[in-house]
């Protein structure tokens, strides 16, 4: 038998009995980062392939979402800081060693581009909404457009984006992959948390983020061909994601004791039901099966698989952040 007790007073609630300094804000932010990366990845990819007019929802309409959700994510991120008044220090330094530092810079650049990308399509968006009986939205966007045209500098940036769409699309495509990987690497850089300490977390979070992006586009899309295409992409991504999850756990089970124990939380421990039942079962398997039925010709409202994938992506991140903080070295 081995037992460790703390005999001096150190009742810091977010350190004992286990580290608990990252609450709901961080997984939500990681989810938002992945979702925004996924949407921008598809938007810029299909733009580069010259399908802007064929797939208006993917390239134009869906890109309204990233700037809004990134702003929400940033609000949560700053809200999660303990020394809030000093948050600007993050923008005063660049440290390549720290994923949080370069990730914050990548997110800033992506945020700025994601604002101007949909703004540069303002006319097309208004036409799209009018054609699709979204009169109210079209009206609001017209108001926004009027307002923006009165502002200084910003119309110049919009024109700049319109003129340089191709190079911006290439840069954004690359940056959205970096952003997707960053949401996983942010965790795996933490030496002390064996559950996070796997480089597979980077690609796993990227694939998960891209699949949530595909789900969001699929949900918004109004034409059958686009919906079918993203259903197919989503099935592929889910298969890759399942493979990565399998490989991740194989790596843990074959690894040192600290990692074996952290994997045990998922293989019989407290996270087993929520991870395999809710995330893998309802967030990956079920939507994949529903999409397969859809492709076979059965009619399934697209909102159901899309919602399940999005919810699964969020739950996955909540579980990983929570369980990771419980996992620790043993001594």
């Amino acid at each position: 038998m081995k037992e460790q007790l703390m005999v001096s007073g150190r009742e810091i609630s977010n350190l004992y009995p286990h580290v608990d300094v990252w609450g709901f804000g961080i997984p939500l932010y990681l989810f938002i980062g992945g979702l925004a990366a996924g949407i921008l990845l598809f938007a810029t990819y299909y733009f580069i392939k010259g399908k802007a007019d064929e797939m208006p929802v993917t390239v134009k309409v869906s890109t309204i979402i990233p700037p809004i959700i990134i702003a929400i994510g940033l609000a949560f991120l700053v809200g999660d800081l303990h020394h809030k008044a000093y948050f600007w220090q993050l923008m005063m330094h660049f440290r390549l060693e720290s994923p949080m530092s370069w990730g914050a810079w990548v997110l800033t650049v992506v945020f700025v581009i994601s604002i101007f990308w949909p703004l540069s399509y303002m006319d097309d968006l208004i036409v799209f909404f009018e054609q699709n009986n979204k009169k109210w939205l079209a009206k609001q966007f017209k108001k926004v457009q009027k307002l923006i045209n009165k502002l200084p500098v910003i119309p110049w940036f919009i024109k700049f984006t319109q003129r340089n769409r191709k190079p911006i699309a290439y840069v954004t495509f690359f940056l959205s992959i970096v952003l997707g990987i960053y949401t996983g690497i942010l965790l795996s850089a933490m030496n002390a948390r064996p559950l996070w300490n796997s480089s597979l977390l980077g690609p796993l979070f990227l694939v998960s983020g891209v699949s949530t992006g595909a789900a969001a586009i699929m949900w918004m899309s109004n034409n059958e061909a686009e919906k079918k295409l993203f259903s197919r992409i989503d099935i592929g991504l889910i298969i890759i994601e399942l493979t990565f999850i399998l490989l991740l756990f194989l790596g843990f089970v074959w690894g040192p004791e600290a990692q074996v124990r952290s994997a045990e939380m998922f293989l019989g421990g407290e996270f087993t039901a929520v991870f395999w039942g809710i995330f893998v079962g309802m967030g990956l398997f079920l939507p994949a099966i529903l999409e397969l039925f859809e492709l076979k010709g059965y009619h399934i409202p697209i909102a159901i698989p899309a919602f399940l994938i999005l919810l699964g992506g969020l739950i996955f991140r909540v579980i990983m952040v929570d369980a990771g903080q419980i996992s620790t070295y043993l001594y």
Partner: peptide, 11 residues
């Protein structure tokens, strides 16, 4: 210079 992000505590 500390923003209180908690990364070092996790690490």
């Amino acid at each position: 210079e500390c923003i209180g992000c908690g990364a070092c505590i996790e690490a």
